[in-house]
Design a protein around this nucleic acid. Structure first.
Lengths: 114, 114
DNA sequence: TTCCATAGTTCAGAAATTCGGAACTGTTGA
DNA sequence: TCAACAGTTCCGAATTTCTGAACTATGGAA
């Protein structure tokens, strides 16, 4: 398995972020991770909505979020701890994540994306 | 040719807006329309970037922007006048368009999206 | 060490989407 | 009636997405 790729803050691309968050399922995942403040495992994120996301699909979703720079994933034992990169993204694109989450009716926690 | 579809403000979907603006070519088109303040024809929008967009592709792009509720197109004689729906979108999702255009390095005019 | 369970990734084929040239529609003007 | 023009629709090729199955990696038990 190849190591996970995480873009540097200066390499963040708005199109990747918008694309990643143009899928409600990914938004639910991201909002959960960002809302927790802490990390979350993939498995814990697989049944947020009205269906159970197949794990191969979930893995793809996580990859899209990761490569857009929205989350950081690091292996911890058997599982993967995912946490949001809201502050980094916000430093690069101020207000973007907040506006997006608000539009989805998922008001961001001030400490995470404000 | 079927009549153009434009969603009502209350039917705007964040996912459609983010998807539409996850393509830099569409962002360029939208920014041009929004920035003009006035309307623009499709043809005038076809060579904004570093390539000429084929007109069938351009037509698709316009459709995506239109159906996301970002622009309104109305036939005027032979051509189509397109104008932005920034204010309507902004009334529904405050700050969203501004944050997105800013992230793309296309600061929105205050009168159009603020 | 070997085996098993768990967490997540990668593979691969089917389904869906996107791209763009060619054909078409609708409007204007000669 | 015809030609020119603006934009849409069609349709086949290329790309992307989806997801079950196979695989990798880690940890714990025997």
């Amino acid at each position: 398995m190849r190591p996970l790729f995480h873009p540097a803050v200066e390499d963040l691309k708005p199109e990747a972020i918008l694309y990643a968050l143009s899928d409600p399922e990914r938004v639910a995942i991201f909002a959960q991770i960002a809302g927790l403040g802490s990390s979350g495992t993939c498995t814990a994120l697989s049944n947020l909505g009205d269906r159970v996301i197949p794990k191969s699909s979930l893995s793809q979703h996580m990859k899209v979020l990761r490569e857009a720079g929205l989350i950081r994933g690091e292996r911890q034992g058997v599982e993967m701890r995912n946490h949001s990169r809201c502050q980094e993204v916000d430093s690069r694109f101020p207000g973007l994540i907040g506006a997006i989450l608000s539009a989805y009716g998922r008001p961001p926690a001030a400490t995470n994306a404000g």
